[in-house]
Computed example of a mutant assay.
Amino acid sequence: MPRHILVAIDLLDSDCWAMLCPEIRDLVKPDTHLHLMHVVPEQKALSPLAQFIPEGFEDAHRAESHKALELLAEDLPKGTDVHFHLRSGNVYVEVLEAAGKLDVDLIVVGSQSPDLKDYLLGPKAARIVRHAECSVLVVRDKGKT
Rank of each mutant, 00 (worst) to 15 (best):
S111N: 15
S111Y: 02
S111D: 13
S111R: 07
S111I: 02
Q112R: 15
Q112E: 08
S113R: 12
S113P: 13
P114F: 03
D115Q: 06
D115H: 08
D115M: 04
D115F: 02
L116T: 10
L116P: 02
L116S: 13
L116E: 13
L116W: 14
L116R: 14
L116K: 13
L116H: 11
L116C: 07
K117W: 07
K117N: 10
K117D: 08
D118F: 08
D118A: 12
D118E: 13
D118K: 13
Y119S: 13
Y119M: 13
Y119Q: 12
Y119F: 14
Y119G: 15
Y119T: 08
L120K: 13
L120H: 11
L120W: 13
L121G: 00
L121R: 04
L121M: 05
G122T: 09
G122A: 06
G122H: 03
G122Q: 06
P123S: 15
P123K: 10
P123H: 11
P123V: 05
K124I: 12
K124T: 14
K124W: 08
K124G: 01
K124N: 15
A125G: 03
A125R: 01
A125Q: 01
A125C: 02
A125Y: 00
A126P: 01
A126H: 14
R127N: 12
R127E: 06
R127Q: 12
R127Y: 00
R127L: 09
R127P: 01
I128H: 00
I128G: 03
I128N: 00
I128A: 00
I128Y: 01
V129P: 03
V129A: 08
V129T: 09
V129W: 02
V129E: 02
V129N: 04
R130M: 09
R130G: 06
R130P: 01
R130V: 00
R130L: 09
H131I: 00
H131Q: 13
H131G: 05
H131A: 11
A132Q: 10
A132R: 06
A132F: 05
A132S: 15
E133V: 03
E133L: 10
E133G: 15
C134W: 10
C134P: 07
C134N: 09
C134S: 09
C134D: 08
S135H: 12
S135C: 05
S135W: 01
S135T: 08
S135M: 03
V136T: 11
V136S: 05
V136K: 07
V136N: 06
L137V: 04
L137N: 03
L137M: 13
L137T: 02
L137S: 03
V138S: 05
V138M: 01
V138T: 09
V138D: 00
V139Q: 03
V139D: 02
V139W: 04
V139L: 04
V139F: 02
V139P: 00
V139I: 06
R140W: 01
R140E: 07
R140L: 09
R140S: 07
R140M: 04
R140Q: 11
D141W: 00
D141R: 15
D141Q: 13
D141T: 07
D141E: 13
K142P: 04
K142F: 11
K142M: 12
K142C: 08
K142D: 10
K142Q: 14
K142L: 14
G143Q: 12
G143F: 02
G143L: 09
G143S: 12
